[in-house]
Simulated assay, not measured.
Amino acid sequence: MTTEESILNKIQILITKHFDTPQEAFEFFDADGDRKLTKREIVKLLKEAEINGFIRGLVSSKLIEGYDKSGDELIDWNEFKAAVAKIKSA
């Protein structure tokens, strides 16, 4: 299993074990309620998914880079859904 697969697997486990739906997870980590996840909020998600602290910042940047289609350096609900769909198919 590659590092990317391992990280995606940990995120999937977090979402399925602790939340009824991906939207519930999104809303939980959207601390300021602006319907977008900031890098800080994504780092919190990664911490909860037990991603090593050393790589959380790098992983959060890569997630934003890979899924931020609007270019605002935030992850909105539709972008989060796309990421979750990729995780489920991995």
Rank of each mutant, 00 (worst) to 15 (best):
M1Q: 05
T2V: 00
T2Q: 04
E5D: 10
E5S: 13
N9V: 01
N9T: 08
N9I: 00
N9Q: 06
I11P: 12
L14Y: 04
T21P: 07
T21K: 11
P22R: 02
P22F: 08
Q23K: 02
A25N: 05
A25F: 05
F26P: 05
E27Y: 00
E27P: 00
F28M: 01
F28W: 09
F29N: 05
A31Y: 12
G33P: 01
D34H: 14
R35K: 14
T38C: 10
K39D: 09
R40M: 14
E41V: 04
E41M: 06
V43K: 13
L45W: 02
K47L: 09
E48H: 03
E48G: 00
I51C: 04
N52C: 00
G53D: 12
F54Y: 11
R56V: 07
G57M: 09
G57W: 10
E65L: 11
E65I: 10
E65A: 13
D68I: 11
K69P: 02
S70T: 15
S70Q: 14
G71A: 07
D72K: 08
E73V: 10
E73I: 03
L74A: 14
I75A: 12
N78T: 08
N78D: 13
N78S: 13
N78E: 14
E79F: 10
F80V: 10
K81W: 07
A82F: 06
A82Q: 15
A83N: 03
V84R: 03
